[in-house]
Design a protein around this nucleic acid. Structure first.
Lengths: 213, 213
DNA sequence: CGAATCATGTAATGGGTTACATGATTCA
DNA sequence: TGAATCATGTAACCCATTACATGATTCG
């Protein structure tokens, strides 16, 4: 059939499939049965985590995310408006609304929020890493395009990863004082990752020269 | 403020912000003004690409994805039911419905579909790679948890990436005959990536032993 | 003082995840 | 022949993206 594998394992579908159902609310009606429980996702923890450095508006959250985890895990800024609002509803974050003007909202993490963050950090981490790289997808389907497309792809990707690796390198120097030990480590992984991928595309380009498609 | 950077650049928000607006349909009414144009996304191209290996049901698509790109870019299986249906509406895929029984649908790529795939392959690839790794997030916020959490995290992640790298290595041998050149290359990048990350966590574990938190 | 950019949001839509369902096939 | 697993789908909800909007501030 000309395709790599029909081998089992390798889907995500089994991953989160354990039916961890909540016991139904059973038609009771003790008040609003408040939505104070809600499954948190990565975005939630990013917001909670960033708020541990102090209260912030959505814009400030955006700034904190940019230049740190925003480098490898990006959001639309609207998420940093939506998610804190959800967390307020859940009681993990509180807000204070500025009087007058734009009624700007400033968010703070609550004790429940700190607890939720700590619980998450203590959980085992089983999820598989996902690498969302359009270039990889294109490489996989490379036979269905023109030979020159592949070469162009390789050049683009090489440049892109090299630029990012250089950027991280510069950032490391700038940031050394402010960042804590673990934050520096994430940056180090970022650099190692980008250099690896950069090297891959470089080797690939060389191979294309030696052995053109 | 104790946080890494408030440096500019590093958000995605500027990325896709060029207002590439379609000229409004201008209230004409030449028939259904069919929704035959639609911005395709990565899922679309995965489906189109997989269909170039021959017609398939959603389940067969799922199998083709698992063990190849599903390794690094996973979907819920329901997407492989939804997306082909959308592509049929766009005319890039055709379907034949089995008579009787479950009325199983088999999808094929159309000429327009092949064209769309080829166009995509010819486009420059500017998107930045996103690495969605919960472990990295936890590492970044490590100070807010217990010291033992970090160590556990490192052990978990080390194991996980080692297992995946081993898996890829085995897969490479099995698959060598069936896979084409570019497909093998994606596997090679996968291996390099996993080995790099495995090594990172290993070094980190060693460092934690030498210099405990 | 006007233009650009910063800062702060909202609305609409589409898409992805989760859960629910159930027929078909295999195999102990 | 019953249990397990394969195969096939649907529905609801949540979340993410995209576009729209506009007040505030800076700066030439």
């Amino acid at each position: 059939m000309g395709i790599v594998a029909a081998n089992p394992r390798g889907d995500r579908y089994g991953q989160g499939d354990t039916p961890r159902r909540c016991p139904l609310p059973a038609a009771d009606s003790t008040g609003p049965t408040d939505a104070r429980s809600r499954k948190l996702n990565a975005t939630s923890y990013v917001v909670l985590g960033m708020l541990t450095y102090g209260p912030a508006t959505s814009y400030q959250l955006k700034q904190r995310v940019a230049g740190t985890i925003g480098n490898f895990w990006a959001f639309a800024h609207s998420q940093l408006y939506d998610e804190p609002a959800r967390l307020v509803a859940t009681g993990l974050v509180s807000q204070s609304v500025e009087q007058g003007g734009r009624r700007k909202r400033t968010y703070s993490i609550t004790d429940d929020g700190r607890k939720a963050l700590a619980d998450w950090l203590a959980e085992p981490t089983l999820e598989l890493t996902e690498v969302r790289d359009t270039g990889l997808l294109k490489l996989f389907f490379g036979t269905h395009g023109a030979p020159e497309d592949i070469r162009q792809l390789a050049r683009d990707r090489y440049e892109s990863h090299r630029a990012r690796a250089d950027g991280y390198g510069r950032q490391r120097a700038e940031v050394e004082a402010r960042a804590d030990r673990w934050q520096m480590k994430t940056l180090e992984l970022g650099i190692r990752y980008e250099r690896t991928v950069e090297q891959f595309w470089k080797d690939f380009l060389d191979e294309l020269d030696r052995d053109p498609p």
